[in-house]
C-alpha cells in the first residue's frame, strides 16, 4: 500500500525522488512536531496559571 502511494511522486520526480521526499518529509515532521509542542506548552502553562489563580481565590474566601 505504501508503495502504491509513493509510486506516482517517485516517477514524477525522477531518479533522486527519494532524497526530495525524505527532505520534505523530514522537515514537515519536525515542523509539525515543533508546532504541536509549541501549542501544548502554551496550553499547559495557561491551565496551570488558571488553576493557581482559582486556588488563590478559594483560599482567600476561606
Amino acid at each position: 500500500m505504501f508503495n502504491s502511494i509513493l509510486e506516482a511522486p517517485i516517477e514524477a520526480l525522477g531518479p533522486h525522488a527519494i532524497f526530495i521526499l525524505i527532505a520534505y518529509g523530514g522537515v514537515a515532521i519536525v515542523t509539525l512536531a515543533l508546532i504541536i509542542f509549541n501549542i501544548l506548552a502554551y496550553q499547559k502553562q495557561k491551565s496551570r496559571l488558571n488553576r493557581l489563580k482559582n486556588n488563590n481565590e478559594n483560599t482567600n474566601l476561606i
Binding site: L13, G14, P15, H16, A17, F19, I20, A23, Y24, V27
Partner: peptide, 9 residues
Amino acid sequence: GNTVRIMYI
C-alpha cells in the same frame, strides 16, 4: 534536475 526543489526548504 528535480533536486533543486530541496533548495526551497
